[in-house]
Design a protein around this nucleic acid. Sequence first.
DNA 1: TTTTTGGTTAAGTATTTACTTGACAATTGG
DNA 2: CCAATTGTCAAGTAAATACTTAACCAAAAA
Lengths: 109, 109
Amino acid sequence: MPDARPDTVLVDRIFHALGDRTRREMIERISHGPVSVSQLAKPLEITLAAVVQHLQILEESGLVRSEKVGRVRTCRIEPAGFAAVEEWVSERRSLWESRLDRLGDLLAE
Amino acid sequence: MPDARPDTVLVDRIFHALGDRTRREMIERISHGPVSVSQLAKPLEITLAAVVQHLQILEESGLVRSEKVGRVRTCRIEPAGFAAVEEWVSERRSLWESRLDRLGDLLAE
DNA sequence: TTTTTGGTTAAGTATTTACTTGACAATTGG
DNA sequence: CCAATTGTCAAGTAAATACTTAACCAAAAA
């Protein structure tokens, strides 16, 4: 990924994080409640090391937060990140829907 | 990308499509109104061929629709796809927010 | 204290993916 | 008719990214 305007960097990271199915599965799991890294890894057929790497990307995107107590790291959802996605999507959609070009479509038919 | 349950395939394609910044820029552009492929390519510093390839991925995801009349292909937003994203995101978020684990967090502090 | 559990880090491999080039087809303008 | 525009397709390249292995550390259990 090349550089971009500062205000898009966040969105970039979020969508990149969500672009991988394994990471979405991890989010799925975490959204049902806090889980440790090894619990998170169990249903996935990849190594623990790979899971840790995915987790790092999820944390950098701000979608997930984690905290280590003792030797176990517990993962939680960070709702703010999700709000940013909804915002981006609904913004683009409403932009389109508010257009009157639809009218042109009808006339063209 | 490996296989997945049939009902997740759509979501997979959508998030994969949104995972690329160039494709999001294309969506950005299209959401302001219908555009031809070459118009779409102009601000992007990649070849027309690359744009066409991105467009194909966007169409397969259901986020964009296009139609060719004469020699020009015009691209439009397909709002239904966007709704699917919002649904997925808000579902995960509300799942988390409705959890009472927050209570546990407070007690732990 | 020894072992097991849970996690981290670095380095390398292999697959995906974005992108280019070049050759081509078809519509439109001069 | 000839040329420019608009797009398509196939094949190859280069870069990004997912994943593994292996060595390691700290906390908890036996």
